[in-house]
Structures are given as structure tokens and as C-alpha cells.
């Protein structure tokens, strides 16, 4: 770090850069936004707990997932600063989620392929090694 201490031009350049940085390139999240996001997260947590009291059939899990996704979006956009960041960072996150979705989606599709071996309800899927073969 001490290498450019003697160089006045380097110091001048760094000085300029420094001023630019001070000039507001750093985005500071306002307290109001943080508190609003916190309130939204609390509200959504309350909703996702309360919604389990209602019988919605298959929709229960989708409601839970949707609420979780909304909460995750709030955290990522505001707490994790993605809203004001370089889009590259958001691309990283979205790509990871995309590939996880492909992974899970195809795995679940494939598990249907063995449906004849799996019965529901009541379980009943057994694979057993028959003795004597």
C-alpha cells in the first residue's frame, strides 16, 4: 500500500477518485425503507402462519411458496441492496434460482415416471429383493 506514497500524481488521481466517491455514488438505504420492509416481512410471516388454519387443498402449499417468494424478494431487493446494485448481481441470483427450478422440476417430473410402482394414498411403494432368484 505504501508504494505510491511518494508519487504526487498518483496521490492527486486518488484524491479526485476519492472526491467522486464521496460525491454520492454510495447508496444509503433510508431508515424509512428499512422499517417498511421489516413491517412487510412481519406481516407476511403472520399471513403465512395464519393461512394454515384454512383448508385450501393443494393451494396451501402454493400460497406458502408465494408468500415465501414475496418475503425473499423484499429481503433481496432492499436488505441485500439488489434494487440499487449492478444488474450483474441480480443476474447471479436469478440464474441460481432458475437452475434450482430446472433441477427440482425435472427431478419431480422424473419421479412421476415410476408412478406405477408408487401408489397413493397410503403409501404402498415397496421395492424388495425377492429371495431365491
Amino acid at each position: 500500500m505504501e508504494l505510491d506514497q511518494g508519487s504526487s500524481t498518483a496521490m492527486a488521481a486518488a484524491h479526485n477518485v476519492h472526491n467522486v466517491r464521496r460525491g454520492g455514488h454510495v447508496h444509503v438505504v433510508p431508515p424509512k425503507v428499512l422499517l417498511a420492509v421489516y413491517g412487510a416481512l412481519l406481516l407476511l410471516t403472520f399471513i403465512t402462519v395464519k393461512v394454515t388454519d384454512f383448508e385450501l387443498g393443494m393451494f396451501n402449499v402454493w400460497v406458502a411458496l408465494f408468500v415465501a417468494l414475496a418475503k425473499a424478494s423484499f429481503v433481496a431487493l432492499y436488505f441485500m441492496h439488489l434494487r440499487w446494485d449492478s444488474p450483474f448481481n441480480a443476474i447471479c441470483l436469478i440464474a441460481a434460482l432458475f437452475f434450482v427450478c430446472i433441477f427440482i422440476g425435472i427431478a419431480v417430473l422424473d419421479s412421476r415416471e415410476y408412478h406405477q410402482n408408487y401408489t397413493r394414498p397410503g403409501g404402498g411403494q415397496i421395492l424388495t429383493i425377492q429371495q431365491g432368484h
Binding site: 410402482n117 394414498p121 397410503g122 403409501g123 404402498g124 415397496i126 421395492l127 424388495t128 425377492q130 432368484h133
Partner: peptide, 17 residues
């Protein structure tokens, strides 16, 4: 080449219904 691992009939369901 007969399969050594075969699916068997479901045992009586207790958990599900």
C-alpha cells in the same frame, strides 16, 4: 435377465386416509 427387484403389492394403508 429377470428383474430381481420388483414392486410388490401395497400393504394395508394405515397412515393415509
Amino acid at each position: 435377465d429377470a428383474a430381481h427387484i420388483v414392486p410388490v403389492a401395497p400393504p394395508p394403508a394405515v397412515l393415509a386416509p
